[in-house]
Design a protein around this nucleic acid. Sequence first.
DNA 1: GGAATGATTCGACGAACGTCGAACGTTGGA
DNA 2: TCCAACGTTCGACGTTCGTCGAATCATTCC
Lengths: 102, 102
Amino acid sequence: MHDAGILEGPSVEQLDLVEVLQALGDPIRLQVVRILDQADTPIACHEMGLPVAKSTGSHHLKVLREAGVITAQVDGTRKYHTLRRDDLEARFPGLLDSVLSD
Amino acid sequence: MHDAGILEGPSVEQLDLVEVLQALGDPIRLQVVRILDQADTPIACHEMGLPVAKSTGSHHLKVLREAGVITAQVDGTRKYHTLRRDDLEARFPGLLDSVLSD
DNA sequence: GGAATGATTCGACGAACGTCGAACGTTGGA
DNA sequence: TCCAACGTTCGACGTTCGTCGAATCATTCC
């Protein structure tokens, strides 16, 4: 069971606006963010029903994670993803809301 | 004097979130947006002091214009640029503010 | 008319991106 | 122990991007 580890990305202060905007500026990744927003629980990659191959989905999740938009928590063979709402709100107030309200 | 024409981009309803985020997700273009924001009057390309060749600057302005972030107004040999604040606010409330307040 | 000014267009270039399938690693269950 | 499930990594591919200089265009001024 190797214990569920949390994959941390950049800290709140390290969040870079350009990097976040680039991460959000893709249809698939925006879809991921919307899915995670509307979900009340962490979601695994294969549960998102992304219209791309699994390797591509994995890539997009990585981009979002490295930009600091989402966090991943490993549980067994699955990896549950969560939106870093509070961190994004703290660093870029209003940004996530404006993107999600569209 | 061929009259100062206004170069219109996409209408408010046509503004696409992904396109806008992509346009904002570049250091140079973000710099342009900040310059236009802090200026109280329209600004010409060569007045911005961008750290790139003029052809590159022209390219970035075009990307911003086609995404609907800025408008250009031709006056003689110059082209004055303005931030489409109200349109962006109407289409994506809070987005511009959150990007500019960083 | 001719020169100067401000900006666009046109290749060209390397770098980065989005995509895929195949292979691999790890974990959990039969 | 073996197999299935889940995800990552690894080339590979074509496309798009950011950048530049040179050439071009439009306008203004002398």
